[in-house]
Amino acid sequence: MQACLATWFGVGHLRPAPGTWASALAIVMGLILHRLGHFPALALATAATFALGLWAVAGWTAGMAEKDRSEIVVDEVAGQWLALCFPSAGFWLMGLPADRFPWPGWVAAFVFFRLFDIWKPWLVGRADRRADAAGVMLDDFWAGLFAGTATMIAAGISHGLM
């Protein structure tokens, strides 16, 4: 069960770039969650996936020298959903119906998340250098937080100029 969750039901075995595949799938799943229960459903799923990811990665990699294996992508799912929570919350607070999630919001969340996850600036890189399961999950948490913030800044700039 832990391996299944850690690889997000086998998505982590897709090549090349399993993290990008997982992020793309997370966008699709996140849009479905948003449609079914708006921001609260996405936020709850994000928190649950992060917690389950800590458990799954710690259990599956116990005894392994390399904790941050390329097939582990539950961290990308949780981080991508965190980035997606920012525009989802904005739409929810604006009173948009759950069946609306304009494309710039989810595209920006995806692009910024992949950027911060690959670039690994500041806290993202610091968490990535940890040699434990928490580090595996935390680097994507920070990348998701930075990506969500960047998405909202980009939205503010875009809407301020329009």
Rank of each mutant, 00 (worst) to 15 (best):
S23I: 02
S23V: 04
A24T: 13
A26K: 07
I27D: 02
V28D: 06
V28H: 06
L36R: 12
L36C: 13
H38R: 14
F39C: 05
P40I: 01
P40S: 07
P40E: 01
P40N: 04
A41T: 04
L42I: 04
A43D: 03
L44Y: 01
L44A: 15
A45C: 14
A47E: 00
A47T: 09
F50I: 11
A51L: 15
A51W: 08
L52A: 15
G53I: 01
L54N: 14
W55K: 14
W55H: 14
A56N: 05
A56W: 00
A58T: 01
G59Y: 01
W60D: 11
W60K: 08
E66I: 10
D68K: 11
S70R: 15
E71I: 06
V74N: 06
D75H: 05
V77T: 11
V77S: 08
G79S: 06
Q80S: 09
W81G: 07
A83W: 00
C85I: 01
F86T: 10
P87V: 07
G90D: 08
F91D: 01
W92G: 06
L96N: 10
P97C: 07
A98G: 14
D99N: 15
D99Q: 14
R100T: 14
R100C: 14
R100P: 04
F101C: 08
P102D: 05
W106N: 06
A108H: 02
A109Y: 01
A109V: 04
F110N: 11
F110Q: 09
V111A: 15
V111F: 07
V111P: 06
F113R: 13
R114V: 13
L115I: 15
F116P: 13
F116N: 12
F116Q: 12
D117K: 12
I118T: 10
K120T: 00
W122Q: 09
L123W: 11
R126T: 11
R126E: 08
A127K: 07
D128F: 00
R129H: 10
D132M: 00
L138D: 01
